[in-house]
Every structure is written in structure tokens, then in C-alpha cells.
Nucleic acid binder design. Structure first.
Lengths: 131, 131
DNA sequence: ATAATCCTTAAAGTTAAATCTAAATCTATC
DNA sequence: GATAGATTTAGATTTAACTTTAAGGATTAT
């Protein structure tokens, strides 16, 4: 009915160092300790880690994630703020995707150029051919 | 027939500091200097900056970009390597997009939850309703 | 009982990508 | 030709997110 930090490290791919670091930074306020002082992670804590992963991997800095967790700790009076933060973050992620798709066109063009260049052995010739 | 560093900074949105830093790191090897030692950026240099932007904004570290530029300097014998690098990078960008789309589902779920929670004023109630 | 895992604190080191500082020099305008 | 604003260099500093080190001890699993 709980996991030691090493097991959580394995499950998440994070190091035990990083997990303690996250806790120190206030990102894991709900992790309990047993009588001997060892951290016992619950399934709820793993869910938190999954949200942290989601936000971090989509570009939110740890400070922003901490803000969200602080709001969670404050309870229902911060529901609006949390909704707003997810809506803003969604927008941010959408913009990231659009940006990536935009640059993808340039990358595809470059691939075309270099495929042609490899074929004829000369970049300048390839550029003329494609233009 | 060329731009001073400040003009390039304005055009690109990069700072003059950053432009000099890029040059120092070997990312702008083609930029010339005038008789007094001031940098004069050509349109070709601006094109390079545009490629650098594309690669950087899609997650390539400056080191990787430098590698590409070094290959360019070596001429046609590295065409294969450059093609391969763009193909790999395309794959990387595709994976990024997929990752973002995957996490977007989680974000959308959270938005649903918090919208409902804001409506009824209680996160726990909202969670039960949605599940 | 002993090896593996965990604890704390505190500080130093790392990496990437800038960003800033200072003193000196160049360019453009009046 | 004076002067304000831009540019030069080398080197120091910053920020984020870890990662490592160390010391010294406690707990857990086999």
C-alpha cells in the first residue's frame, strides 16, 4: 500500500535524487513518511507525478507547476485559478504544435534539397534544379 | 549591401549579445567584418539565421546546429551527412508533436474536470460526476 | 547479519543558452 | 569636429533543472 522512493524512481524514470529535489521544491507535498522516516509514495502521489510529467514535458517550468500545487493545497477557493492555468497551458501547447508544424515545412524543403544534392553530388546544382 | 549587428538584432528578434555569442560558438562563420572590425551581415547570413532559428526552435541544441554548419563548410562531400541529419531531425520533430498531442489529452481532461469543479464549487464532486 | 536501500543536510558542480559588464573604438549626424 | 549612439573584446554572471559528493547514520530485505 505504498512505494519506496527507489520503486517510484523505477516506475517514473526519474532518479531518487530528482524525486527528493522535487519534494524540496514543493512539488510533492502529499508524500507521507513512515515511522522510520522513509518516504512512502501513494498512488495519489504517483498521479501527481504523472501530472508533473505532463506539465513539465509540455514546457511548463517547475515554478509554474509549484504554483499549481500550491493552489491545490489551498482548496476549492482556487478552482478558477487552476482552470485558468490549464486553459492557458493548453493554448501554449497548441502554439507549440503549430510552431513545430510551421518549421516542419522548412525541414521538408531542406530534405528535398539535400536528396537532390546527394543525387547529383552538388548542392548548388540541386538548388537551381529545385528553384 | 549588408547590415550592422543592431539591424540584424531588430530583424531577427535576437539580441546583439546573442548574435555575437552565436558567432563565437561557430554558428555564423560566414559573417564578414568591415575595415574597422564591425560585423557586416549579408542576406546569406540572414538565411543562415533563419535556418538556425528553425533548428533551435524545434529543439536542436546549438551544438547540433554547429555540426551542421561545420559540415556545410566542408562542402559537397558531407551532403549525405546533412541529409541524414535533417531526416533524423524531422523524425524528432514528429515525435515532439506526437508527445504534445498525447499530453494534450490529459490537459483537456483536466480542463473538463476544473470546468465542472468551478460550476459546482467542489473538486471532489466534479471528479465523481465525470468518472 | 549483512547487503542494499534509505535518511538528512549542505554545498559544489554541470550544462545549455544566454546575458551582462567594462573599457575602448567606430559611425552618423549636426 | 563634437558628440550621441552603436559596436568591439574578453570575461563574469545568471537561470533552470538537475547531478554529484560527502558524511554519517538508520532501515529493510534476504
Amino acid at each position: 500500500m505504498g512505494y519506496y522512493i527507489g520503486q517510484v524512481a523505477q516506475k517514473t524514470g526519474l532518479s531518487t535524487h530528482t524525486l527528493r529535489y522535487y519534494e524540496k521544491e514543493g512539488l510533492l507535498p502529499y508524500v507521507k513518511k513512515n515511522g522510520s522516516g522513509l518516504r512512502i509514495f501513494s498512488d495519489t502521489d504517483l498521479n501527481w507525478l504523472s501530472i508533473i510529467e505532463c506539465l513539465k514535458e509540455t514546457g511548463m517550468p517547475l515554478k509554474g507547476i509549484k504554483q499549481y500545487i500550491d493552489w491545490d493545497k489551498e482548496g476549492n477557493k482556487t478552482l478558477n485559478k487552476r482552470l485558468e492555468m490549464f486553459e492557458n497551458h493548453k493554448k501554449h501547447v497548441e502554439e507549440q504544435i503549430e510552431k513545430y508544424q510551421k518549421y516542419m515545412q522548412k525541414i521538408d524543403y531542406k530534405i528535398n534539397v539535400y536528396r537532390e544534392a546527394v543525387k547529383c553530388g552538388d548542392l548548388q546544382k540541386a538548388l537551381k534544379k529545385i528553384k
